[in-house]
Amino acid sequence: MSDVTRLRHALPLSQDINKALIDLDSAIAKAIDTAKAAGLPQGLIVAELHGHAHAQTHNMVKA
């Protein structure tokens, strides 16, 4: 996990990182709104997000 940055040690965050975080948050929110509008059950949306979070955590831990 040597390539994982702990945010409390990297503060303040650069403008590039802040923009990337805002863009990521906006894209996730838009995708959730689109999924809801398409009629996906909320539980399925949550399960999908949880699965991706779990996979990313696994990738960080094994690195």
Rank of each mutant, 00 (worst) to 15 (best):
M1Q: 09
M1W: 05
D3Q: 02
D3R: 00
D3T: 00
D3E: 12
V4I: 13
V4Y: 10
V4K: 04
T5I: 13
L7Y: 02
L7M: 12
R8H: 08
R8N: 12
H9A: 09
P12H: 10
L13Q: 06
D16T: 09
D16H: 06
N18S: 05
N18M: 13
L21P: 01
D23V: 04
D23I: 04
S26Y: 07
I28F: 08
K30D: 15
A31C: 04
A31P: 03
A31D: 08
A31V: 04
I32P: 00
D33T: 11
D33A: 15
T34R: 03
A35K: 06
K36L: 12
A37E: 11
A37W: 09
G39Q: 08
G39F: 05
G39W: 08
G39R: 02
P41Y: 04
P41G: 11
P41E: 14
P41M: 09
P41I: 06
L44V: 13
I45M: 11
V46K: 12
V46W: 07
E48T: 14
E48K: 11
H50A: 10
A53Q: 06
A53C: 03
A53M: 08
A55L: 09
Q56N: 13
H58G: 01
N59I: 00
M60V: 10
M60Y: 12
K62Y: 06
A63I: 00
